[in-house]
Amino acid sequence: MKRKLVIAVTALNAIDSPGPGVAVIRAIRECDDFESRIIGLSYEALEPGLYMHDLVDKTYQIPYPSGGTESLLTRLQYIHEQENLDLIIPGFDAEMFNFIKLRDKLWQLGISTFLPELNQFEARDKIKLFDFGQKHGFLVPQDKILYELRELKKMADNMEFPIVVKGKFYDAVIAYSYDQAEKAFHKTMAKWGLPIILQEFIKGTEINIAALGDGEGKAISIIPMRKLYITDKGKAWAGITIEDDKLVELARKFIEATKWRGGCELEVMLTDDGKPYIMEVNPRFPAWIYLTAAAGQNQPASLVKMAMGEKVEPFNEYEVGKIFIRYAWDLITNIKEFQMISGNGEL
């Protein structure tokens, strides 16, 4: 008889700039090696994933990351009493810190996670990425971390355009003049706070790599994907798995150097002369993670197995030319369900 696991998943916002939660669940559901009861953890009542009852069995709202670890732990304890959770898979950058901090306490409660160490998590932070690249010999664009507008103004005469203005968690704007850079600074600061990252613009082809590390330096799975269609927010709306040993090697080296535990996404810019620049490292599965399962390397299911203590052998093959095309779908629900989640925090 197969073991039934109770798995909680966050990031159910399957919107135009989606979180990976729904794709993670879809991949887990496809794995025949275990049965699962999926618990959705949501921040907002209109995250589409919580109304997808064929994927999510039950949803609980959790406090925003800004509420800190104590309120999150209290809520998770309550959910655990109801559901007897085996595993939590977080999927938002902004919540990772809290979940990593709570890892040991969750373990004591009997809840597993499969997350990077805090130092691994912090080393790849956008504001430290350049140093990280220098240390491990990765190509990373030059950057400058700005804590106030005055610093940007000081640089005005020496700036080379275009330049990329990035928020500490999300959003990136390409600025072609100082005025545009200042406007982007204000807009990004209003949304994500300080610091703002000013990054060298690298021209090339955008490649994303989904990778899964075992925490001991071994890459269990690496799938490179080229975006075929990009939304105005820079998100892939369609993409294709590609075969490039250089990219696979880059991800393998990253996992080996960091001893990364869990899923991650490397955002790479491949220049016309073939140099792969790491533009960003996201410390969680990407929204297109289901493509890894479709291409023959089910990363979410492998993470579940490793989190449950199973030894997983590295994959060594995947299907090249597998394409995903995202689509929008009007999911219909009723006011009762909306009331349950927004009023009671459960659905």
Binding site: T205, R226, G239, I240, T241, I242, E243, G321
Partner: peptide, 18 residues
């Protein structure tokens, strides 16, 4: 070597996705 070519003349470059 790695370029896939169908009988209808459809070409796929697996290294770039083109």
């Amino acid at each position: 070597k790695n370029i896939a070519v169908s009988e209808e003349g459809f070409l796929f470059n697996p290294a770039t996705g083109d």
